[in-house]
Amino acid sequence: MTQDNNVASSSDSGNNFAESFRLSEERMKEIEDETKQSPLTSMLKPLTELEQQYREGPFLAGVAALQKLYGGIRMVRGDGNCYYRAFLFALAETLCQDTKHPEGQRILTFLKEVSWKHVKEVGYNEMTIEMFYEEAVSLIERVISGSVDAEALLKELNEENSTSDYCTWYLRVVTATHLKMDPQRFEPFIEQPGMYVAQFCRREVEPMGKECEQLQVLALAEAFGVKVRIEYLDGHEIVAGDVIHHVFGPENSALQIYLLYRPGHYDILYPKKSSV
């Protein structure tokens, strides 16, 4: 027996437990630090960027199929918040590029009047949500008034512990609120057996870093009335020359965003002109 083993066996069972817990916490911290090296939302890149990641197989065929429709991609940090963050960026960027966008005012009204009223109705404590709500309203106000241009937007939404995180978390609250407003409709879709909407929101929606399932994807798209088209590059077969896609939120919305799903992750897609 080595000396190390002696030390380990002489410590009490509680210490062993604490030791393994500490190690896993250290590893988690490492992963977190690695993740933080990538930007929250990257520069716009050509879609060919994806080819380099896949050498063969259905993924590469999928990338080729995607290239027929899309020209660009913006990578979003893989920290578990990617769907909400991608949604936020794509929405703000769309409104920023066209300050006369007919949907801009509707989004602002939704945030200021509808979302805040519903957040309070489903029982959130105003004091805890207020500052996140204010950040989200301020961002959309600045975007539709034209006081932030695309470059400034990219810069602002890449600042650590700032606008992007605050707004991303408010989108989580909007998502949870949408689910809580109609629990009977959504409960059957909760994958965890026997879990109620309130519990689901507390465990899977409200904490930062919790990845989302289709239920959250649908709820956020519906709440904002934004059409979210998601292309699935997940190794499935190509159907009729295209990768599988699904549309969430209202079909007829004048506001549409495009996302790429790869297992466990979302990025933002940019369609070629009038291709999708």
């Binding site: 959130y124 404590n125 996140f132 507390r202 409200e206 904490p207 930062m208 870093g209």
Partner: peptide, 9 residues
């Protein structure tokens, strides 16, 4: 720990 959210106080 991991179940913390800003909704809590």
């Amino acid at each position: 720990k991991d179940q913390w959210s800003p909704a809590l106080t």
